[in-house]
Design a protein around this nucleic acid. Structure first.
Lengths: 152, 152
DNA sequence: CGTCAATATCTGTATATGCAGATAAAATGA
DNA sequence: TCATTTTATCTGCATATACAGATATTGACG
């Protein structure tokens, strides 16, 4: 009895805060991936950026911002680190407002070097999760993003 | 055909990185909660801390660290902000190594003030998600945490 | 009691993150 | 062409996060 109302009560307890739960799981997952990537000198966040650049080629900050759903100011700082390490370089652009970046040769090599380490981490997490749960996860996360976007 | 192997191939594409997906969803969710909490001057992360302290009463850094699955050094810095604002205070402890903190009166008031705003945000996200998906989310996140923990 | 190991927290350092507001350049329109 | 608006990015500021290593205390053992 009171199935729904007790669920609601539970869901409105801050312990079950969706933001907190996601943040917490993300932190723990990040730790696993960081550990796997350790020898490459990359953090999981940096790997994500390299991967995006590897796929996109030359791309503007704005486009990256849309693609990764990351604030542009965050990208500026995160790219700064990779540029300093010589993994990412600026490229020319016709519109002087637009900054376009791409992987350097060193960056492409680093990405190739890191890929198997990332795959190992991903494989481990997927194994611990199962294909079914993985599908569920992707679906639910997409819905959360939609729900949050629609509130703006 | 090739249902599983194509899934695997897809899952091992960095675009589907579990860490990235979680981080991204967490960022977007945080934005919604932060917007809802704006008038209170709290961020969702700070609300989480206040909520934990409201439930736990006087608690050590180590216990909080276990409870919230957050690094102790992170808690030190995050609590610093709340102490500075007078929302959290230190309390006496027999073991001089152990630092124990609790909500101040002002902190309890702030928590009570913020609670309905948090609930509104949580309610909105849950509505956009549905009860079924919410249950799935909690289950999957728990599994991810288990999977990541077991890798240590 | 004194030494050493174990425990709990803090500091230094570095990255991640995003809001507000600044800056610069392109597009628009009179 | 000049003034205004729009667009794209950057800077200043503040918080979140955690690894390594420093510090301080307690506990255990001879």
């Amino acid at each position: 009895m009171t199935g729904d109302s007790s669920n609601l009560r539970e869901a409105l307890d801050p312990t079950h805060c969706v933001s907190y739960r996601l943040r917490r799981a993300a932190r723990l997952a990040a730790k696993s991936y960081d550990a796997a990537l350790k020898t490459t000198g990359l953090k999981n966040t940096q790997f994500t950026l390299l991967a995006a650049l590897a796929t996109e080629g030359a791309v503007s900050i704005g486009a990256l911002s849309d693609l990764l759903a990351t604030d542009g100011t965050t990208l500026t700082r995160n790219l700064e680190v990779l540029v300093r390490r010589g993994l990412v370089k600026d490229c020319a652009s016709d519109d002087a407002r637009v900054r376009t970046v791409q992987l350097s040769k060193k960056g492409r090599n680093k990405y190739q070097e890191a890929l198997p380490f990332w795959q190992a981490a991903q494989q481990q997490v997927l194994t611990g999760l199962g294909a079914e749960q993985w599908r569920e996860l992707e679906g639910v996360l997409r819905q959360i993003e939609d729900a949050c976007h629609s509130l703006e």
